[in-house]
Design a protein around this nucleic acid. Sequence first.
RNA 1: CGCGGGGUAGGGUAAUGGUAACCCACGAGGCUCAUAACCUCGGAUAUGUCGGUUCGACUCCGGCCCCCGCAACCA
Length: 494
Amino acid sequence: MTKKPFYITTTLPYVNAEAHVGHALEFVRADVIARYKKLLGYDVFFNTGTDEHGIKIYQKAAQAHLDPQKYVDGISDKFREILPLLGISTDIKFVRTTDPHHVMAAQEFWKLANKNGLIYKKNYSIKYCVGCELEKTESELVDGRCPLHPLQEIEIINEENYFFRFSLYQKPLMDLYERGSSSDTNAESKNSFVIPNTRLNEIRAFVERGIEDFSISRLASKMPWGIPVPDDATQVMYVWFDALVNYVSTIGWPDDMVSFKKWWNETGGVVQYCGKDNLRQQSAMWQSMLMSVGLTPSKVIVINGFVTGEGGVKMSKSLGNTVDPIDVVREYGTDAFRYFVTKELHPFEDSPFTMEKFKETYNAGLANGIGNLTSRIMKMAADNLEKTDMPAPLSYEKLDSKEYFDAIEGFNLQKAMNVVWEKIAVLDQKIQKEKPFSLVKTDKEGGKKLITELVVSLGEVATFLLPLLPETAEKILTYIRENKMPESPLFLRK
RNA sequence: CGCGGGGUAGGGUAAUGGUAACCCACGAGGCUCAUAACCUCGGAUAUGUCGGUUCGACUCCGGCCCCCGCAACCA
């Protein structure tokens, strides 16, 4: 029997800076879904990588007196190294937009869109501030002037760029948002095209208002760090056009169509995680690009909120309220980070991440919650049961909780975590009420039966946690299998 | 009148017309299997504000105040 395929990807982080907690959050959440699908028997393609072209990187490399390729090699490696620290599945695919195969794919994508008449060249007037020596967008200007150099006139520079006929896609995009997900009829695709719904409304309103063609190239003489435009050495691709193509290049498009069809068509499309700042690019621009080369749209776009500092203020180095995910993992462990990201941060909205809050919930949920529960149950088991009495673990798909499965299918990992912690609370109550530790003294058999029930329930909790806190889940299942109490606490109180 | 989201105990959230709930923090008891853990009970001056609809409004409608995004070629 062949397994059903499933394809999920994170957004490729742009490597103009090192990994921050927002990236880590997205890796973890996508990983939970990837593991979940694997546990249900799917054949999973899980993609991430790094987005490495564009002006910002070109400038950053110049500042560091590095060749751009050297510079991106360094940062890309750092992103790759953070993945195991976060407990990300080791079979994840890591694509780089400087990979030769990706470069080729982006160029083929361009050629095809061009052949289909969706690309044209036109004069593009750039607003340029001589003071800053930079292009400015309309929204950056105040009263038509650069706020940093209000005495200088903004210059208008004309430059020939290639444009993509985004404007042709208003109707098709509206249809896509209306009918929800792509053509497949799986139960899971009852989700709307963009999750959560408020983001779907937002993008729908944006497209409905009217959309304009956007430029997809830059003059190579000004900014050479990009993929060359086919048959025009004077231009390189605008970084968005190149980067978005990774979602198809990573699964083999255009040269390995067997692989591509499996992961793109048989799956009903890709599940894409991204931050709310990517809503427009992923749920509108990218979808129109796909249509332009005759490919079916993505399956669903899941939008994360931002991680903020205390009180919802933006994290920034100057405010000193940033959190380095690597530091957190070093101090508290991988699953502690995964716990916080999935259970304490809001699944779709902005959410504050402070170390105070982290420690508080670590102690409450992990040390006092699952950690303590494991110790108390396994102590009773180790003292009163034989290894041969230990119950066999439940298989994941046999777990019984519609609420839990519905929550994960809807990408609401917080809700799924709450279901599990509810079960933990019930077990603590049960121990208190039925006192198996006293019962074994008066009624050995009755006590053993009760303890066995508790072990079964603990095993169930661990199984529920397999996609969410894989390391912890495996540890607990091992203790059960070997009928041992943890030699040291699962989560030490901090 | 640019568009959108939001304002609920100290903090974080839930509740789409019917007793305002949950987690953390806080207080008092209890238990002894467990990591000063766990269980029970409890207290909170909690629905931004003013008005409307309704038997009944966090929920629906309108005004006002405040916060946060977006306003396309920065990713």
